[in-house]
Amino acid sequence: MNKEIADTTQTTDVARNEAALLPPVDVIEDANGITLYADLPGVPKDKLTLHVEGGNLSIEGELALDMPAGMDSTHAEVSLPRYRRVFTLSKELDADKVSAEFNQGVLKLRIPKVEHLQPRKVEIRVA
């Protein structure tokens, strides 16, 4: 089982009843850390909130669409005004060094592994 980065949105949703959309994500791990991509279309940069707290990473965004005054919605597939998803980070990930980029509704997060846990080449000496 993959325990590097566990999706715990379900459990936290019980605590916070506000309905939210679950953004689709890609999580890719390499030797030095994890890269997470999340699709949050309709969220401007200033409405995106990232929290790293107690080993949890939460991604929240509020939609802000440019709607004409008095618009009636006739068909809505994106029917809630916010996105939320929470992940549990494992201990070897360095939560203090998370870096984020947000561009045209795509969030890219880079979470490096704690330095001493990064792979190192071990020299083998033949006696």
């Binding site: 279309p41 309709g42 669409l65 709607m67 004409p68 005054a69 008095g70 618009m71 009636d72 919605s73 006739t74 068909h75 809505a76 597939e77 994106v78």
Partner: peptide
């Protein structure tokens, strides 16, 4: 995903 709405002056598709 798409949302569709309208006003008396326009039809708006997202």
């Amino acid at each position: 995903a798409m949302n569709v709405g309208g006003t008396p002056q326009s039809v708006d598709i997202y």
